[in-house]
Design a binder for these strands. Structure first.
Length: 606
RNA sequence: CGGGGCGUGGCUCAGCCUGGUAGAGCGUUCGGUUCGGGACCGAAAGGUCGGAGGUUCAAAUCCUCUCGCCCCGACCA
């Protein structure tokens, strides 16, 4: 392309709304423009990058036997009602009605649609496995779209689905996808970690996220620098030193602790205890993911540990959990936060305890309409694994300004459930190897692969006959990659104060030829010749033939981030041009006749 | 949805508190000088001050409502 004819509206000034680097640079370099919150237009440069990323994805999907489909983005409600997700997806789903008043939605993912095809057409194990994928626009009414292309309401996703006759087949399919994902992100020049993750609303047994390290990310992951263990903080664990407790008294002893409200207060209170010898008691209100009942939960942790509420929700089978309000706590246990404990807590709970209800499930706003809320199930007590076997601990007495010492967890509390509830902290020991410690940092989810199992085939009736004639639900997997997130992550990880530094494979052009002075006949002709020859060699070339000052062209070239720049300028006198590598900031002089070979050598090493 | 912020030429912003002729820089156009890291001089075009209503002799400015966008939180395959 000739820059003089190509639409690349670069911006000298930083758009006010752009916060993160990738957003700023995509706007400034003329790749995208915003249409609304979380809705962006790709400009020609941006669309080139997206297409390059999609090409890589297609190649790797096809390489593992993937077959590309193209499914509708507009879905009748029926399929979603069948799987049960019409209700589960809540406000995040864009919903609309047609002229007849029928419910429709815009697809936020396509498990239902692919499953609907599979159940009609696939009857026998002989037709399996199948690997189906598409690259499609998805719609999600995010409550808070943000950070440019990182959290969008409309975005492009590659979603793949595998169908197998059994779980062993799923394991194989899952691994194929996993390997393909590695190749895709490697080729896109993105550094990432594969982490265990919570499968959330997708359902299923196991999932791995591909996380690109960047401070613009929204997730935290823990990574062992020694063995490579990595986990989303929703799942990550660590190894703690064992604590040996003294035996302590026969039974808990209550003692007055006037003014003590926090773990910290109690560590300094005479007769108190260090934080790791305290039991922290947190009151949560959980919503059961199946029955939608709400009920109170006591989450027990060591005093110096932090609860991770996704872990709590996952472990107790809740669709959501929220901290109880002060009046709920008092209502439930008869004391205020600061004096709470689980010893004999169940005896204290009034049978008519009712949580406050919120106007809708996702709203943190709670109305005082207790009379309308339903009576709840019994109190559930869940204790973090790190408390197992602990004794002679100190905790609240469920009486304001009083605590208990000498508490033996198994003897005095008998939790209903043990679970991993605590948030991993940086510097803790790796759970997977003997020597490593964990680092915790921010990352962006660029891909997610799930073993769905039979969740959708069960609910939607996708069954096949096995070799021995039995009818079984198809075992499914689902695998997503966010195309825009590849772009964002690549930029977040590869930029400098001058602009974007594209990894070669997804750069909009392989090389830019900058003619410093287009009024100079010799320079212009050399530029034209290189443009012709480089394209002839199969390269994507951008010729900067604008009538602009050299400085402007250099700035723009750096900003849009093309990996190689050929400067046709004053060195033409000696028959040479300058070859500049954007990433390394290195330049070399190359004779005009050698340019094509040299560029090919550099550009095709991608 | 809770909290905060912002809507003024294409972009970045000032003006608003204390009501009285709508401004600057960048960009754009034209002329000239310059020409390898976002040049300089001169001239010009370009604005329903997000929208509606109200107060007032008079509203970008004060009040009410509303729409949009951004940030933090909550939430999120």
């Amino acid at each position: 392309m000739r820059w003089s004819e190509y639409f690349i509206p670069t911006l000298r000034e930083v758009p006010a709304d752009a916060e993160v680097v990738s957003h700023r640079l995509l706007l400034r370099a003329g790749y995208i423009r915003q249409l609304g919150a979380g809705i962006y237009s790709f400009l020609p440069l941006g669309w080139r990058v997206a297409q390059r990323a999609m090409k890589i994805i297609r190649e790797e999907m096809d390489a593992i036997g993937g077959q590309e489909f193209f499914l509708p983005a507009l879905h009748p409600a029926e399929v979603w009602k069948e799987s049960g997700r019409w209700d589960v997806m809540g406000q995040t789903m864009f919903r609309l009605k047609d002229r007849k008043g029928a419910d429709l939605c815009l697809g936020m993912t396509h498990e239902e649609i692919f499953t609907a095809i599979a159940r009609h057409e696939i009857r026998s194990y002989k037709q399996l496995p199948q690997v189906w994928y598409q690259i499609q626009t998805k719609f999600r009414d995010e409550e808070r779209p943000k950070s440019g292309l990182m959290r969008l309401r409309q975005f492009i996703m590659k979603d793949a689905y595998t169908f197998d006759v059994d779980w062993e087949g799923l394991d194989r399919s899952f691994n194929h996808q996993r390997e393909a994902y590695k190749k895709i992100f490697d080729r896109c020049g993105i550094k990432y970690h594969i982490v265990e993750a919570s499968s959330g609303a997708m359902g299923g047994s196991e999932s791995s996220e591909f996380m690109a390290r960047t401070n613009a990310g929204e997730d935290f992951i823990a990574v062992c620098e020694n063995c490579g263990y990595a986990g989303n903080l929703e799942k990550a664990t660590s190894r703690l030193p064992v604590i040996e407790d003294e035996a302590g008294p026969e039974a808990p002893e209550e003692f007055p602790t006037p003014g003590v409200r926090t773990i910290e207060d109690l560590t300094t209170f005479p007769g108190g205890a260090s934080a790791d010898r305290q039991i922290k008691t947190l009151v949560y209100i959980a919503t059961d993911s199946l029955t939608q009942e709400t009920y109170p939960v006591l989450a027990l942790l060591r005093g110096d540990h932090q609860l991770h509420d996704t872990k709590l929700a996952d472990n107790i089978g809740a669709s959501q959990v929220r901290p109880a309000h002060p009046e709920e706590i008092r209502d439930l246990l008869g004391a205020s936060a600061g004096s709470l404990g689980a010893v004999k807590a169940k005896e204290k709970v009034k049978t008519n305890f009712r949580p406050l209800i919120s106007p809708d499930a996702t709203s943190p706003v709670v109305r005082k309409l207790k009379d309308l809320s339903r009576p709840t199930r019994e109190l559930l007590i869940v204790a973090d694994e790190s408390l197992r076997g602990r004794r002679n601990m100190t905790t609240g007495a469920n009486r304001d300004d009083h605590h208990l010492r000498g508490v033996n967890i198994e003897r005095d509390i008998k939790p209903d459930q043990w679970a991993d509830l605590r948030t991993v902290m940086p510097g803790e020991a790796c759970p997977n190897c003997d020597v490593g410690t964990l680092e915790v940092f921010k990352a962006m989810e660029i891909g997610h692969i799930f073993k769905l199992g039979t969740k959708y085939s069960d609910s939607m009736g996708a069954r096949v006959l096995t070799a021995d004639g039995k009818e079984v639900p198809v075992v499914m997997g689902s695998y997503g990659i966010g195309v825009e997130r590849i772009m964002s992550a690549a930029i977040e990880q590869n930029n400098d104060s001058d602009g974007i530094i594209w990894p070669r494979a997804i750069a909009p052009f392989d090389v830019i030829v900058t003619v410093t002075n287009t009024k100079d006949e010799a320079m212009r002709e050399a530029g034209e010749r290189l443009y012709r020859e480089l394209r002839g060699a199969g390269l994507d070339v951008l010729l900067d033939d604008r009538d602009e000052r050299a400085g402007v062209k250099f700035k723009d070239a750096d900003l849009i981030g093309v990996p190689l720049r050929i400067t046709v300028g004053k060195k033409m006198a000696g028959g040479a041009v300058e070859l500049f590598e954007r990433a390394a900031k290195k330049s070399e002089d190359v004779a005009l006749d050698d340019v094509v070979a040299r560029v090919q050598q550099l550009a095709l090493s991608r």
